[in-house]
Nucleic acid binder design. Sequence first.
DNA 1: AATGTAATGTTATAATATAACATTTATGGA
DNA 2: TCCATAAATGTTATATTATAACATTACATT
Lengths: 165, 165
Amino acid sequence: MNKNKVISPFKPASHQHQKCLKSAIDAAKKHCELSGLRLTPIRQRVLELVWQNHEPVKAYDILDNLKKGKSSSAPPTVYRALDFLQDEGLVHKIESLNAYVGCNNPKELHNSQFFICDDCGAVAELDDVDIRELLQKKAHRFGFRIADEMVEIKGQCKECHESGV
Amino acid sequence: MNKNKVISPFKPASHQHQKCLKSAIDAAKKHCELSGLRLTPIRQRVLELVWQNHEPVKAYDILDNLKKGKSSSAPPTVYRALDFLQDEGLVHKIESLNAYVGCNNPKELHNSQFFICDDCGAVAELDDVDIRELLQKKAHRFGFRIADEMVEIKGQCKECHESGV
DNA sequence: AATGTAATGTTATAATATAACATTTATGGA
DNA sequence: TCCATAAATGTTATATTATAACATTACATT
Ligand SMILES: [Zn+2]
Ligand SMILES: [Zn+2]
Ligand SMILES: [Zn+2]
Ligand SMILES: [Zn+2]
């Protein structure tokens, strides 16, 4: 019984991203409904923009896109929406890039491990019990109590290094 | 044969920090000498300021301190020194805090794992082969080639949660 | 409708980091 | 020693990322 999850794998270039997007928005709607939270138009729009693709998106890029629809948007518009989405597990921040990725597994807040391709920018997200347990074990040895884990691994995805040379 | 290293443990409150500082500067001098690099006064001063304690230090705090000695310092002064020190493994950046910690193990560049206490701010640094190998194994499964690892674990150090309640 | 709370609008500013170019300082060879 | 070069630093300006503070609007409950 292994609870390791691949929350979001690297996608083949051919994949139908519209489906990713739709299912992410649907999941977010359902999650908010169940939790009695409001997925307001701004929040939904920001979430859609984060889900443009499988690469981390910058807050000010989101802002630029928001402004195209509604010129009154300002930084707090974006950061508030991102804060809400992060609190609900609908978005994660990639600390080493100051950028944000969508997550379609909001049911339970989780600590993820991210694998980020330096070449194409794609991100894969795992929720891997083996990694969590190992970190837990290491921490336990010196009496450290883990509250939050940040694991961001940079390198090359399969496609990129296979096509690379 | 286990190559796991505790590069920097959590220190007892009583520890003689002057010794940490001195040995870190000495190690840096030796490292630069061996590598034919120049640990200039600015670089050494920045390194000393990073080693003020075992908490991550902010670039602009370093800058404020530099200015006390020499009012001509500006952001590039600090960031250039930090870049140099990071390239040489004398300093690491904690991405999730936008802050910098000293490393007294510059001989070989390494990927570290950081454990950071949310309460007292102290940081412990490991260079743990078990963690690296597990991440490697996980990455390998989907053909990912690791170039760089960021592992930053937040929580409470032993002292803080023992004294906490 | 009256009230309280949540969300958004708006302006300003804080915090982090880099670009670009000028000047100075070290270094190694003629 | 002197010069040519590269390395390091100085200086000014600006880019990027994020938050503070307060006003206004929308929503839900009574
Ligand atoms: Zn997709
Ligand atoms: Zn790639
Ligand atoms: Zn110390
Ligand atoms: Zn602590």
